[in-house]
Nucleic acid binder design. Structure first.
Ligand code: FES
Ligand code: FES
Lengths: 141, 141
DNA sequence: TACATACCTGACTAAAATGGTCAAGTTTAC
DNA sequence: GTAAACTTGACCATTTTAGTCAGGTATGTA
């Protein structure tokens, strides 16, 4: 079970945005340099974040991205959904009546993985960007 | 973030074992048929489970595997460690002083992922094979 | 003692996912 | 007009996953 770079980078970039977008839009180039993420890869990620109305963009010189909501309104769940970083623990289709073994009943571990998924998702639903900002400034002081 | 088949199969197989090993050792062939898991793949998994003293084996005709501890003494943590299904959320080496960005400080999200890892692992530490047996028989009745 | 059953070991591999790069734009501030 | 910055889509190398395959070795039973 591991977290992919796409999810990790999305959150890193948005924290960066939350810290620096108060005066001017922030360019991906800046984020790329500050956070050490490939510029081209960031573009893919921000394209998805924009489609999901998590960020807004301004084109042209001095352009860049800005959060489209307040940091406390952006939960990790929203971010992860936007970039398709989903938690997948069960193998079977959840709606399907068939189990992952192809039989008519769910496998012996189905309920366990389902609980696990809920457990993990509850973490993402609790945490917002604002929590991360606090956490970060605590560490600086 | 997704669970791999190796971890999933290991738990499925051990639940099967816990249900059927009370009289005779259980052959991998039986598990393979009941759970719909490739026999050759099961052998790889059980090799690791054996090295980690989670199961014991008997060779020859009528041979097979038996749990080496009571179901309530086998936690998911133990199983996952045995088959190398580890939860990995941070990108950096934890001991290292360097962050995942190569800089001297930890990245802005490091603490978050570390919390997440703890959150997930606590689930695995709580759950034992016995819990799964209960859950399963509940569903049958 | 033969022989079938079942464990044991290690090498190999097809397919998918990951983590990007690259190329060719369009928009807009200055 | 030109450079900065967003936009789009194709492409690709590497790694991981989820196995397969080909040999073994041990042992209960007939
Ligand atoms: S995971 Fe849903 S049936 Fe096995
Ligand atoms: S995850 Fe540890 S420094 Fe980024």
């Amino acid at each position: 079970m591991k977290l992919t770079s796409k999810g990790r980078y999305a959150v890193m970039a948005l924290v960066d945005l939350a810290r620096f977008d108060t005066i001017n839009p922030v360019s991906l180039r800046d984020i790329s340099l500050r956070q050490g993420i490939s510029l081209d890869y960031l573009e893919q990620i921000f394209s998805k974040l924009k489609k999901n109305q998590i960020v807004k963009s301004t084109r042209g010189t001095q352009g860049g991205y800005v959060l489209s909501k307040k940091p406390n309104e952006i939960k990790l769940t929203n971010i992860f959904n936007a970039v398709d970083e989903k938690v997948k623990t069960v193998q079977c289709k959840k709606e399907s009546k068939k189990g992952c073994n192809g039989k008519a009943t769910k496998c012996v571990t189905h309920n366990l993985w389902d609980e696990l998924e809920t457990h993990i998702n509850s973490f993402f639903e609790k945490k917002s960007l604002e929590d991360l900002l606090k956490n970060n400034s605590e560490r600086i002081n």
